[in-house]
Amino acid sequence: MRIIGSLLLVIVLLLIAYAGSGPAGLTPLFGIVIPYIAIGIFILGFLWKLLKWARSYVPFRIPTTGGQQRSFPWIKWSRLDNPATGTGVIGRMVLEIFLMRSLFRNTRSEIVGTKLVHGSSKWLWIGAMAFHWAFFIVLIRHMRLFIEPVPGYVHFLESLDGFFQIGHPRLMMTGVVLIGAGVYLFLRRWYIPQVRYISLPADYFPLFLIIAIATTGVIMRYFTKTDIVAVKTLLLSLMTFSPQIPEKEKIDTIFYIHLFLVSALLAYFPFSKLMHLGGIFMSPTRNMANNLRVKRHVNPWDYPVKVHHYEEYENEFRDKMKASGIPVEKE
C-alpha cells in the first residue's frame, strides 16, 4: 500500500498536468502560475527550515567519532574521521557531500554457518552516488534553457555527457544513469525485507516523482520532441519576470507535465526528507570539531543553582532535630 499509494499519487499528478494543460487548455496556469508558486514555496520553505534548525540548541559537542581522536603525537590520529580543527571539519564535510564517505563505510552483517560475519557493503553507496551525481549534472545541463547566452560550462558538461555521440540528439549518459539508479534504489528498497519494513510513503513518493520527471524529460528529448526554442523563450520570460506563453508555437503537453512534476517536487522539497540538501550542512554530528580534550566547553545552560547543604539545614532545624532525638553534628 505504501508503494502503490505513492505510485498512484505520482500518476494523479501526471494526470492533473495532462488534463489541465492539454484538454482544459490551462497553459498559463501550468506554465506560469504554478511554477512561480512552487519556486516561492521552495525558497521560503527552505529558509524556514534552515532558520528553524539554526535556532535549535546544540549545547554539546557531538561529532561522530569515526576514528582515533587527536592525542599524543606518537598515536596516529584520524584527521578526517575525527577532526579536531576547522580545516579538518571542512575536509570531512567535503568528503561527505561530494563522495558520501559515511555511506561508503556501510557494513553488512550476516550469519555464515555458525559465525556472525561483518563485511563491507558498497551497493547503497554506488546507487546513491550514481543517482545524486547524475541528478546534479542533469540539473546543471538544464541551465542551457534558463540562461542566454548559454554558459561555457554547460557546453563542456554536455560534451562529456554525450561523449559517445550515440544518435541524434545525442544520448546523454546522465539521463540513463539517473533513471537506472532511481529504479535500482527503488528495487533495493522493495527487495530487501528489512529496508522494505522501514520504508514509508515519504521514501517512495519522492523516488517515484524523480523517476517520473527523468522519464518525461527523456521522452521529450529523444522520442516525442518538443519545440525547444519556444520552451526556452517561455523559461527566459519566467526568469526575467515578464512571463509569456508562446502563442504561435504550441509547446507539447509533455513539457507541461514535466514542468508540473518539477513544480510538485520543488513545493514538496522543504517538507520532506529531501531537505538533507540543507540538513547535511547543519548536522552537528558532522560539522563540529572534536576538540573536547583541547578546549574547555562550558555547558551554556549552566545557571547558579540555589543550594541548601547539610550545615545550613542543621542550623535551621537543630532545635527540632534535638527535640525528636535525631543526632546532630554540632551541639
Binding site: 539554526a54 540562461i147 542566454e148 547566452p149 526554442v229 523563450t233 527566459l236
Partner: peptide, 26 residues
C-alpha cells in the same frame, strides 16, 4: 556560518533569475 549559508543558498537558487539575460528570439 548560518548567515553565510543562507546567503549562499539564496544566491545559488536565484542564479537563473539574475543571469538569465536578454531574451532575443532566434
Amino acid at each position: 556560518y548560518v548567515y553565510i549559508g543562507i546567503v549562499a543558498f539564496i544566491v545559488i537558487v536565484t542564479y537563473p533569475f539574475w543571469s538569465a539575460g536578454k531574451a532575443k528570439k532566434p
